[in-house]
């Protein structure tokens, strides 16, 4: 992507978004639902990679952010306008990430992975308990959800925004600081980066999108309970997609979210029983034999061309 300027990349993103925005009138319901899933995972994976890809942190907090956003919708559905709920969902996740980040971003590696996972679970169990004890419900029905087309456009907008943000961050000083932190955090500090501030800022920024996406998707699911929106697999799958795509890139996670959603759908239909076994096997093979992710294929191809 280095051949393109920031402006080119942003224009390309917006163009793609424009084309995709016409899909509700061109596609079958099934294809549209599939596209929606692709878009959601693309948004999640790109925003995950925005922070984790550059800094080499392994965050499993995506499910927590997603679920928080969804619950903002669930609790506010009757009082809040739809757009406002989505915005608030994103903001709630961003604020939560800033607080959590300030407390735990000094931890690295496995510790950080475990604690971010634990935080998600803590919030999930906390909400479950609260709902049971004080609201007397397990799940919530969203009574008057917007049209599917509206939700599709919201998710598309959020994902496009995530991509544009990731592009801008990468080209900015913040992006440089994050790459420095990923490479050698102490060295970055000796060159004047307030690493704590940079990490908290970027972590919080990257949490906005899963929060907002959770708020939007809750409208589509219409019935939500803590287990479905805080499902740890949302977090795992995001990490998986981003890393299989190549977490230090932006195009990689997008490509791999499309690939994953299609592959999952295909395998599910073809091999309803065997499909998760095959998925597991594929994942292992990918990590072992293509450790740089799909993006490294592109690099290799480009390298081959430039040598020819």
């Amino acid at each position: 992507m280095s051949r393109f300027t920031l402006r080119d990349s942003i224009l390309a993103t917006l163009l793609a978004a424009l084309v995709l925005s016409a899909m509700p009138w061109l596609m079958s319901d099934f294809a549209l639902a599939l596209t929606l899933t692709c878009l959601m995972y693309a948004g999640l994976a790109v925003s995950w990679a925005m922070f984790c890809g550059a800094t080499n942190y392994l965050s499993l907090a995506t499910a927590a952010f997603f679920g928080m956003g969804a619950y903002v919708t669930a609790w506010g559905a009757e009082t809040l306008a739809y757009g406002l709920a989505v915005l608030l969902g994103g903001l709630a996740a961003a604020v939560f990430a800033a607080l959590v980040g300030a407390a735990v971003l000094h931890l690295r590696g496995a510790y950080f992975a475990v604690i971010t996972f634990g935080l998600g679970e803590l919030v999930r169990h906390g909400i479950t308990y609260y709902e049971k004890a004080y609201a007397g419900t397990v799940g919530r029905v969203i009574s008057d959800p917007p049209e599917t087309v509206t939700i599709y456009h919201t998710v598309l907008l959020l994902t496009a925004l995530a991509v544009v943000t990731a592009l801008a961050v990468r080209a900015s000083r913040l992006g440089l600081a994050l790459r420095g932190i990923g490479s050698d955090e102490e060295r970055a500090r000796t060159l004047g980066v307030d690493t704590r501030r940079a990490k908290v800022l970027a972590f919080s920024l990257s949490a906005f999108f899963p929060g907002a996406l959770g708020a939007a998707m809750a409208m589509r699911w219409t019935y939500i309970d803590p287990l479905s929106v805080f499902n740890p697999f949302i977090g795992f799958q995001t990490v998986l997609i981003a890393m299989v795509g190549g977490a230090h890139t932006i195009l990689g996670p997008i490509a791999s979210s499309v690939l994953f959603s299609l592959l999952t759908e295909y395998l599910r239909l073809q091999f309803p029983y065997l499909f998760l076994v095959i998925l597991g096997l594929l994942l292992i093979l990918l990590v072992l034999y293509l450790p740089g992710g799909l993006a490294s294929l592109l690099d290799r191809w480009r390298w081959g061309k430039s040598r020819a």
Binding site: R173, L176, A177, R179, G180, G182, S183, D184, E186, R187, A188, L191, G192, V193
Partner: peptide, 20 residues
């Protein structure tokens, strides 16, 4: 302790963008 993955020039740009 250079930033191994970054091109040499970005290693130098780093200080210019932050401390300097």
């Amino acid at each position: 302790r250079v930033f191994k993955e970054m091109p040499a020039i970005d290693n130098i740009r780093f200080g210019l963008e932050f401390a300097g």
